[in-house]
Design a protein around this nucleic acid. Structure first.
Lengths: 138, 138
DNA sequence: CATTATAACGCAACCGGGTTGCGTTTGAAT
DNA sequence: ATTCAAACGCAACCCGGTTGCGTTATAATG
């Protein structure tokens, strides 16, 4: 596990308080985090626009990948498989808490049929259901 | 193909000008339509809130199903396979025009592994790429 | 250490999708 | 023709996200 400062450096991103704090959050997160999720967890003071721009920067540089949750809001997760902009693992979406969890299962593109003239580039699989906590509560 | 009026009647929905117009649009649509898409195509005057409520009503009654597109905005499409609230076909998402197309391929839930304690209820597959038009333009 | 360029920040203002509340209209059952 | 709830129309609001622009601070350079 690289140090936070080094990761930022490696991606030509400056070492600011906010970026270090945000990246640290993601290193320890067990699920996708939205702008709101992050806002609630940050202890350092910050500007919401800056946070949006930080998330963009992290996504652009391949540190994070973006997932649209069931509500249509963006969540982000740390890119474990290096800096591939094209991630292809599946996501589990909890119907109760709206949480998003990355799964490591990879899917083959080949077998899928698309209409004539369409070209496929990647596949995204979402599995919906209940996560552990929500299943125990309900 | 049932008549518009009958479909509405069968779902205990009243035959209003807007609802007939909206449903007619969906019967002839070749891809998912957002609130904005519909607004642009409607010739009858209408209120935007009423249109939102109409879409909800159609989804509730199983006439349409909702798909969140790559931007996180809701699109809707006519439910061909009857009124199953649980649809399980795949969707093609065009990376250029952001269009959403329903595919008829069905996926099996069984083989997918989810973390311990998670329960899976349905699966959604999104294939990303370029649709015919966009491929020819670009 | 001082200088400097520019990446990142902070703030105000804005945008679009979507919702809520409430009074009015209208479809369809009687 | 009457009736009543479903649907409508409008105002106001909420939230996620973006744009523009002037200011601050990181990190490279001498």
């Amino acid at each position: 596990m690289d140090k936070i400062e080094e990761i930022l450096q490696q991606h030509n991103l400056r070492n600011t308080k906010l970026r270090k704090a945000v990246l640290t959050l993601f290193m320890h997160a067990d699920q996708g985090l939205s702008h709101l999720d992050i806002s609630r967890r940050l202890d350092v003071p910050f500007d919401r626009v800056t946070l949006f721009r930080t998330l963009h920067a992290f996504e652009e540089s391949g540190i994070l990948h973006k997932i649209i949750d069931l509500n249509g809001t963006a969540k982000y997760a740390y890119n474990l498989q290096g800096d591939l902009k094209e991630h292809s693992h599946a996501h589990f979406m909890c119907l109760s808490c709206e949480g998003v969890f990355c799964l490591d299962h990879i899917f083959p593109l080949n077998e899928l049929k698309v209409p004539k003239g369409f070209s496929k580039q990647s596949i995204d699989v979402q599995i919906k259901g209940l996560c552990v906590q929500c299943r125990h509560i309900a």
